[in-house]
Design a protein around this nucleic acid. Structure first.
Length: 621
DNA sequence: CTAGGGTTAG
């Protein structure tokens, strides 16, 4: 309509009108917002409009300068004097409101649109998905289908972000197969991410493998999926495939690769990635991943180096470093770092405070712990959540204040879960409070009847206090549930290769050498006071078998293998699936004393640095 | 005019 007016104006020889539009168009393309706005007002007085593409240029200019009022002014202009903008042009305003974060305005405009095309619907669906209004996104998707508008790849990749169950995901997936939209790279990476979010890695992988032409983002999606789900091996082999396929690793790729190194405790490979990164672009997320990798691989010197050299630090950098120090047994340093965080202007969050409380609980700092716990809401605006309570229960329990710990559970504002009770149970075991332990264990098993550790712990607690009948009942209940103990397993990296040792498994090619070596080592250790403590045997074993099983705890095998295969200057770094037992802890301390080697053992919760017969945990874990 | 990947705890 507007082009007809302009044509007419030009045809009847009114140069003023045509030149106003020309001038306006020129100013829009030059991104001269103030003058374009003045020209627009002149046009409005004359009752003339430019074409839609020109307006879209002007809106880009408003968006770039975050000129909200000007944007709204342009919106009013195209609706003035009965002018009827096309859907294309209204969509531009819809998207403008969404980008300005004015969802209400976008909704109002959407409601009064005379017709809505796929872009209009998709704009709204994407807007809802991005602010977490998943219900509305899905509802609009359904309304869109009902109104007869067919979704395109943009729609599917937007609505996939709002998908909140595996069922919905599968339905959406089916819906995109018929129109052939799943081969779009955006849709494919969204599908991969979504299936991975639900732990459906094999589905994610088959969607990935069906890809004919992909791009680096799809590669990053699949590598990231495996890295996030602690499938580091697969993530790394996909990374190799990616390089073979000729794709360039960018920061996103390397972040996932580092995460894979972290979950596998592959310090040497992580270092290689670090060297690679130094040559290319670094960025904050990648630096954070690097920092975390060094912390989790137990190399605090490297972590501190990265942290101090980071150009920019955010709350994640600080949280990672605080928690990293705490988990590695440097609680005081962790708290000092938290103090200096205050001067940095970065506000601690929920996770930062978890690290702080963790530091207190693992160093027995009861007063500091109470202080942080009670002041976190007032000072940092973070309400204590379940995990914060968990740290406090752990702190009080370890310090022997079991009643206070139990009291705190009853005062919790959120429901205690199995993890909460497990904290109490662990303390009951250390301080041998059988009755409270039984209570905690029953709560755990009510919430999680398959928790093997709890059955075993409870039966051991009964056994240690000679309550054999109760111990037997627990074992029966465990058998009735059909649960089995996960075998202890330790990993050690030697020359970029992971060696895995499982309790009772003799498949390692050097099993016999290791056994001989271990026996000799135990003899030498006995000379400096080692006496195997069979209290830590958690299985149904009797007599000599008990000591035998203890002798082959996987971390002992891994330590011996480390001594045999690593240069004497190297730290022996071991990662294991279960928490270290008291006997292996003494064993590792004495080995570090006898051989003058540093040993670092990472369990699912924390780290032990053994050096000269002393552990960084201070025997408190 | 509408869409995709990477970091802290558990």
């Amino acid at each position: 309509m507007q082009s007809r007016r302009c044509c007419v104006a030009a045809a009847v020889g009114v140069p003023a009108v045509g030149s106003v539009v020309d001038e306006f168009t020129k100013l829009c393309y030059q991104r001269d917002l103030p003058r374009a706005m003045r020209a627009m007002e002149v046009m409005e007085r004359c009752g003339i409009w430019a074409d839609a593409v020109t307006y879209s240029e002007l809106i880009k200019c408003c968006l770039a300068r975050r000129a909200v009022e000007d944007g709204k002014r342009v919106h009013r202009h195209v609706f003035s004097n009965g002018y009827e903008p096309k859907t294309f042009l209204i969509n531009i305003f819809l998207s403008m409101y969404v980008k300005f974060g004015l969802l209400d305005e976008a909704m109002k405009l959407f409601d009064k649109m005379p017709e809505r095309n796929v872009v209009s619907w998709t704009t709204m669906i994407a807007a809802f998905s991005n602010v977490g209004m998943s219900g509305d996104a899905l509802e609009f998707f359904v309304l869109m289908l009902r109104s007869g508008v067919r979704p395109n790849m943009f729609t599917f990749s937007s609505v996939l972000r709002a998908c909140e169950s595996l069922r919905t995901l599968r339905q959406l997936h089916c819906g995109m197969i018929k129109p052939g939209l799943e081969s779009d790279v955006f849709v494919r990476s969204a599908l991969i991410d979504n299936y991975s979010k639900w732990g459906e890695l094999q589905t994610a992988l088959s969607i990935f493998n069906e890809m004919v032409t992909g791009d680096s983002v799809v590669w990053n999606s699949i590598i990231g999926s495996f890295a996030e789900n602690n499938e580091g091996d697969e993530a790394l082999s996909l990374f190799k495939r990616m390089k073979r396929a000729g794709f360039f690793a960018n920061q996103g790729t390397l972040t996932s690769v580092l995460r894979a190194c972290t979950s596998l405790s592959l310090l040497e490979l992580g270092r290689q990635v670090h060297v690679h990164i130094l040559k290319y672009d670094r960025d904050l997320i990648l630096d954070n991943a690097l920092l975390d990798m060094y912390c989790k691989c137990g190399s605090l010197e490297d972590a501190k180096g990265v942290f101090s050299r980071m150009a920019e630090k955010d709350v994640i950098s600080w949280s990672t470093m605080v928690a990293g120090l705490a988990q590695n047994g440097f609680s005081r340093e962790a708290l000092e770092l938290f103090d200096s965080m205050k001067g940095s202007g970065i506000k601690p969050n929920y996770i930062t405070l978890l690290g702080v409380l963790f530091a207190c609980s693992h160093a027995g700092l009861v007063d500091n712990g109470w202080y942080y716990f009670q002041s976190m809401s007032r000072l940092y605006g973070v309400e204590p959540g379940r995990e914060h309570y968990g740290c406090m229960i752990d702190l009080l329990g370890r310090a022997g204040k079991l009643d206070e710990a139990a009291m705190l559970i009853s005062e919790m504002k959120c429901e205690p879960d199995a993890v909460t009770w497990r904290m109490l149970l662990a303390s009951c075991r250390v301080h041998k409070n059988v009755d409270l332990a039984a209570h905690a264990a029953k709560q755990i098993l009510k919430l999680d009847p398959t928790d093997v550790g709890t059955y075993i712990l409870l039966s051991n607690i009964y056994a240690n206090s000679q309550r054999w009948d109760d111990a037997a009942k627990v074992r029966k209940a465990m058998q009735a549930e059909g649960v089995r103990k996960e075998p202890g397993c330790s990993w050690i990296e030697v020359e970029m290769q992971i060696h895995c040792f499982i309790l009772g498994d003799k498949s390692h090619p050097r099993t016999e050498d290791i056994g001989v070596e271990l026996q000799q080592l135990v003899q030498r250790l006995r000379g400096i006071g080692y006496n195997p403590d069979t209290n830590f045997v958690l299985q149904d074993l009797e007599g000599e078998q008990r000591e035998d099983s203890l002798r082959y705890h996987s971390e002992k095998l891994a330590i011996v293998f480390g001594l045999m295969s690593l240069a004497t200057s190297k730290t022996i770094r071991i990662r294991k699936n279960l928490r270290i037992c008291g006997d292996c802890h003494i064993f590792a301390k004495l080995v570090s004393q006898l051989t003058q080697r540093t040993i670092v053992i990472r369990d699912p919760i924390r780290y032990h640095h053994f050096r000269d017969g002393i552990c960084s945990c201070g025997d408190y874990w």
